Computed example of a mutant assay.
Amino acid sequence: MENLLSLSFDYLSSFDGVKIRKGLRQLEGLLAQICLSRTTTAAERRRSTAIDGVAKSSPKDLASLSEDPAFREFFKLQEGFEWNVAIRLISCLERLLGKGSNGQNDLLLVSTLDLLRGVLLIHPPSRSLFAREIYMNLLLDLLEPSSCPAVQSSAVLTLVTALLEQPSITRCFESLDGLLTVTSLFKNRGTSREVKLKLVEFLYFYLMPEIPYAGRDAANAHGGPHRSPSKASRLGSGGRERPEGAEGTKTTNEKQSLLGRYLNNVEDLVEDLKETAPFGTNFG
């Protein structure tokens, strides 16, 4: 696995778009081997091959994934700087962003962001990279009006993944005027409808009660990512009170006040969030 990672990192460090694409595909192949499983029976393989010409793959069950030797090896390698995939993808984003906007470069940006999102999901500790201002600013730069809609949409989704269960990174996002960046793009007349929908979804996500990630120790103890409970009932009355042990978090009311500096009718968003209760969130 180290040899494959080393080879893909060499390609990603290039300024040649063809080599970068090759490096991205190698990493995608590695993650596919770890996270997907081939159909097992001969009948299933023949049936899927007859229909599509290839044997289909399906996602592995999350519970079994953490027990998979290949996944455990990959997760362990991500704990060190030398083999961390996220930092390499972020560096690749920096180089691509410096090359300006054109069709091929935009495709590489989207592919890099998509892959980064997957890595952040299967190795949550890598999200801590975005607590550094230089890397958070990189995501915000991708949300500039000059970026193409596909890049903007992918950057919004990557931002959500970076902030997921990471209140300290959310505070970094706020301190760098991230809310101003997001709302300015939303109010820009040139922003596409698809991107605006993604931004509204982001605002709903931002306003939700915060549940901190359990941390490195829990991940190591289980040999993989720790899954926090999906319901926010552990946070008491949703947006109004900060529970014991949740230092560094903000309530929905506090975030509503911050967002209200840049956007009107935030109260309507909060009311809608309470009514729809996504992911079973209890706002009390």
Rank of each mutant, 00 (worst) to 15 (best):
V182D: 09
R46G: 00
K196E: 11
N282I: 08
K198V: 00
S14A: 13
I20M: 08
A277Y: 02
Y11L: 09
K255I: 02
E241S: 08
L7N: 09
G238D: 08
L115C: 05
G80H: 00
P212N: 10
L199Q: 08
P167K: 02
S147W: 01
L142S: 01
V119E: 11
D61A: 14
F9W: 03
S175I: 01
I51P: 01
E144S: 14
D268R: 12
E28N: 08
G23K: 07
A150I: 06
C172I: 09
L179Q: 10
L138D: 01
L109W: 00
L273S: 01
D272G: 04
L96A: 08
A232S: 14
P209V: 04
G224M: 04
D106A: 13
R38K: 09
V182Y: 02
L121A: 13
L24T: 03
L163S: 01
S126E: 06
E79Q: 14
F186C: 10
G223H: 11
G223F: 12
V85N: 02
T41N: 05
H226A: 15
N220C: 05
E67I: 00
S257R: 12
S154A: 14
A221C: 05
K99Q: 14
L121W: 11
G53W: 11
L197R: 13
I20C: 02
R47K: 14
S13V: 00
L116F: 07
L203S: 06
L258G: 01
N188Y: 14
R261W: 06
F202L: 04
I90G: 09
L31G: 08
